[in-house]
Amino acid sequence: MIRIDRQKCVGCGGCVDLCPRAAIGLYEDFALINSALCLECKTCVKVCPMKAPQEI
């Protein structure tokens, strides 16, 4: 399972744009993954400049 560390995420939206399943939404200052839609393809992990998405 992948979740976004809110301490690290700055809400730039790069993962939101590039998630192939549109599983990520952008809230106030951070991104949030909908685990029901997530395929765990790790695109967000690869693209994030802040290392915010983490596998748990």
């Binding site: 730039c12 790069g14 993962c15 590039l18 994030c48 400049p49 802040m50």
Partner: peptide, 8 residues
């Protein structure tokens, strides 16, 4: 303030 971006 912090900011970031991902460019293709």
């Amino acid at each position: 303030h912090k900011a970031a971006c991902m460019l293709n």
